[in-house]
Design a binder for these strands. Structure first.
Lengths: 168, 168
DNA sequence: CTATAAATGTTATAATGTTGCAAACTTTGC
DNA sequence: GCAAAGTTTGCAACATTATAACATTTATAG
């Protein structure tokens, strides 16, 4: 498995995108799911950056490309991508981000920088097992977990520390 | 500290409500915050049950009481209650629920039953520390954590198991 | 090729949340 | 008390996010 690029570190982002698209095509082929032109285009737009995109942002992008899309077009594509685990919905932002673990069974934990908006998706087995244990203690049967952490990514933290230094 | 009632167990819910209101009054007095009539009424409505309430549900309730409220009224009351830690927003539901740990410094973890909609708020120190550790490993400085688990509460799980038994 | 299913287009509408400004109410300092 | 200042509420309009319903087109299977 290749090392994954951190969103907030310089990296060849085109490689992220093409990797994600290639993975998506594989996954859909394996499951007999149709990754149509629109669906693929929406996925590609979402992967343009590591900042989650709102449905209407996507809609606007499609608009500028001459594709005369309406909200349902986008939401349907998103539903499909969510269903096959190709994107995640960030509930605290009402926005969508590419899944960096597509195809692997996983539970995402998201680190969301409130400054630069970049999102890092993690797999954190110890967190997941602690959550399961806490739920089990209450006799609760967990199914889906929404785990989103906002804060400052290393870059933005250093930056704001520098500013503070400068002024202090 | 009194034992806390579980939302999905029969309990004297009026006691929940009056306790919550009394706590809220204390907290606001201590912090010189004004728990006005509207704010208190919104808090009381949210505490009517352990099922999270949408802003427009609250609005509708207020409407039936002759209080001619508009959305900003409700959202402002909610902002206030959130600010003082008296209610929580459940991002995955766009809804609000009374905080069962008001006044205590805590990070809520929510168990949301997809069947009966009741929500149990937990403090799970081991989960929180695992999250912090995972974030720290990525050099990320966490501030707010959204942790919402959907699934089946014990009651609804037993119920659906019984139905399955019956049919199988 | 045709019957069927799946996907998309289109229009309208629902649900959720915000802005901006004016009026009413509270607190503070005198 | 009373006026000034700050806070809260009323109100109208609007912005954003998401879905419903139904027609049309495109793909797939027989």
């Amino acid at each position: 498995m290749p090392e994954r690029a951190l969103p907030y570190r310089p990296h060849n982002h085109d490689a992220c995108v093409s990797q994600a698209l290639a993975d998506a095509r594989d996954i859909c082929r394996q499951q007999n799911a149709r990754l149509t032109a629109i669906r693929e285009r929406v996925l590609e737009l979402i992967w343009q950056s590591h900042k989650p995109l709102g449905a209407y942002d996507i809609l606007a992008h499609l608009g500028t490309e001459g594709h005369n899309a309406a909200p349902p077009t986008v939401y349907r594509a998103l539903d499909f991508l969510l269903q096959y685990g190709l994107v995640h919905r960030i509930a605290s932002l009402n926005a969508f981000t590419g899944c960096t673990h597509a195809g692997e069974s996983h539970r995402g934990m998201f680190l969301i920088c409130k400054q630069c908006s970049n999102v890092l998706e993690l797999e954190a087995p110890r967190v997941s097992s602690a959550i399961d244990e806490a739920a089990r203690t209450e006799a609760f049967s967990p199914e889906d977990v929404t785990l989103e952490v906002t804060g400052l990514c290393p870059l933005c933290r250093d930056e704001s520390a520098a500013v503070k230094d400068h002024h202090g």
